[in-house]
Design a protein around this nucleic acid. Structure first.
Length: 296
DNA sequence: AATTTCCACAACCGCCTAAGT
DNA sequence: TACTTAGGCGGTTGTGGAAAT
């Protein structure tokens, strides 16, 4: 049995708010406040609306100091950076943007910013835009929703997808509108790196492998369940090498977004350092990092 | 000019969580 | 401790206007 509805849908008005309703809501809140009970609010204020609807209308449009439209470059960068770190937690992202609401930020991301970054347009709008699906045109997937499987033993085609038990790299052609993700397994690690280095196929990312059999110590069972197998030995790697991600074609100073990990920048060798203080922490972080994106 | 398609965004739905009892 | 409930949140849908055909 489902949850009881918060109000009788047949007795409340739905759809767009009229100026009169807005005025009634505003006047009541200005006089008496919200009363701390949105469910009882519409009755007290004389509105034939669901309490949730009143709350949303007030929070997103009628309360003072709401900014509408006209996102600045700086706001764009904050959204992009936070999205890469925490995914689609719009309320958290919005809390970092004074005057912006979660709904506004979410709509802005879905309709403009994502396209601005990844170049979706009418000609390719057939590509999925479902937020719960990680698609080839969305190089910063929501890590909470990733549940994609597939295997590939060699450099894959762009549409061959990945995730569990595999490392993968995003690759970029120029311009960014051609961005795509390319997956590879540990088994194909050498092949990939050789391809990247010798043929300069695409600007991309190389991640050093974790030692064979190493498992994340993360308490999350989802993360910990990602057992790495078949990885080449890393005994020849120095700690410095192990602690870096390599963007062999990045320019020094390039900003690079690491999904679920944060913002880094390429050093003079195109490397991006981990934040981890010790081996275990670095490996733990490594297991959490599943997406990468150049930030333009 | 009429129709269709696309886009932006307001609003809704349903799930989760914290607080109250 | 278990249950109820309102608030909060993210995903999705509906709608009006703009653009394309």
């Amino acid at each position: 049995m489902g949850r009881a509805p918060c109000c009788d849908k047949s007795k409340v008005k739905r759809g767009p708010w009229s100026p009169e309703e807005d005025e009634t809501l505003k006047n009541y809140v200005n006089k008496y406040g919200t009363g701390g009970n949105w469910i009882a609010f519409p009755h007290k204020a004389g509105l034939r609306r669901c309490g949730k609807s009143c709350r949303l209308r007030w929070l997103n449009y009628l309360r003072p100091n709401i900014k509408r439209g006209g996102f600045t470059e700086e706001e764009d960068n904050i959204i992009i950076s936070l999205y890469a770190k925490i995914g689609s937690r719009w309320s958290v992202i919005a809390s970092n943007l004074p005057g912006r609401t979660d709904n506004d930020v979410k709509n802005y991301w879905n309709t403009k910013l994502k396209k601005k970054l990844f170049g979706r347009n009418r000609s390719n709008s057939h590509l999925s835009t479902k937020a719960t699906t990680t698609t080839i045109d969305d190089p910063i997937p929501n890590l909470n929703n990733i549940n994609l499987h597939g295997s590939s033993s060699s450099l894959t085609a762009a549409n061959d997808f990945f995730i569990d038990d595999q490392l993968y790299i995003p690759s970029f052609s120029t311009p960014l509108t051609q961005s795509k993700l390319t997956a590879f397994t540990y088994d194909s690690y050498n092949l990939i790196t050789d391809e990247l280095h010798t043929r300069s196929l695409v600007p991309g990312l190389i991640q050093y492998p974790t030692p064979q059999g190493h498992q994340a110590t993360n308490s999350s069972s989802q993360e910990a369940s990602r057992t790495i197998s078949g990885s080449p030995s890393s005994s020849s790697l120095t700690l410095d090498q192990k602690s870096r991600l390599f963007f062999p074609f990045a320019n020094m100073g390039d900003d690079i977004l690491l999904g679920d990990f944060g913002l880094g920048f390429a050093d003079d060798r195109g490397g991006v350092g981990y934040c981890g203080q010790d081996d275990d922490e670095q490996y733990e972080i490594k297991h959490q990092v599943h997406s990468f994106s150049r930030c333009y």
